[in-house]
Design a protein around this nucleic acid. Sequence first.
DNA 1: AGCCAGGCCCAAC
DNA 2: GTTGGGCATGGC
Length: 287
Amino acid sequence: MSRIVLDEVKDFNLEHIFDCGQCFRWNAEDDGSYTGVAGGRAVNVALSGKSLVIDNATSDDFEEFWRDYFDMDTDYGKIKDALRAQDPVIGKAIDEGEGIRLLDQEIWETIISFIISANNNIPRIKGCIESLCENFGEKIGRYRGKTRYAFPTAQKLASLTTDDLVPCRLGYRAKYIINTAKMYTKLGDKYFEELKGEDVSYEDAFKKISQLQGVGPKVANCILLFSLKKRDAFPIDVWMKKVMNHLYGFEEEDVKGMEKFASETFGDVAGIAQQYLFYYMRNKALD
DNA sequence: AGCCAGGCCCAAC
DNA sequence: GTTGGGCATGGC
């Protein structure tokens, strides 16, 4: 079984990366490593000292997929310094989740995952997604004692009815998923992939993604941030409302004010700031 | 037991 | 353009 090792990894903490709410298919092992599936590849990721070990991956896999997935070519140290310099308050949130990185996730999977996330809790979101994969995803093979499945394709989900999705316990989201699958296959992969481009603005991508059923402002911002490389996207959910109230004194209903503040203070890396803040609020026992 | 969860849709202002 | 009720399901 192949594995690859990267030395001298910086600004990289597995718990911070996988537990900051951006992804749902990674699970911690007893030894602190994480096992998950992305890009149709099942791997285990471990950090030993400053070395990142990706098990069940080749160097070709790394160059083709994992390098971008883990955003290895971005200097988070520089971003964190800039955020601290810009705002005195965010430092303690950064301290709490200093090893967060924004994963570059697949668009289709991210769209569906965050439609499922609406008015839902994280353990149940993960369960729904795994169920979707086991029922309708392509079998990848056995790895570490379990059969692993890819995320189901848009074509596959577009061919289903809400009755087919009953075992996944998606509730009222099932029809959104099927309608969005149909819309996605109609528009085509390319339509969405192009939204990743630096020449596509946040506003343009936001409007296009918001056409999908089940995608409101919050979900759209998550899709933009986690799969369309729009690092200025600043998703505001109930946890963000809490932390923005706690750290900055915003009224929890003042979403507009929070967005304005984020844009003015954190600028084109507002989404990265958002990740530190979200992680801080969810994991830190507040005073 | 009852409130809540990474909100959205849709109708009614 | 904004506001509010309704919403499947199950975690805690």
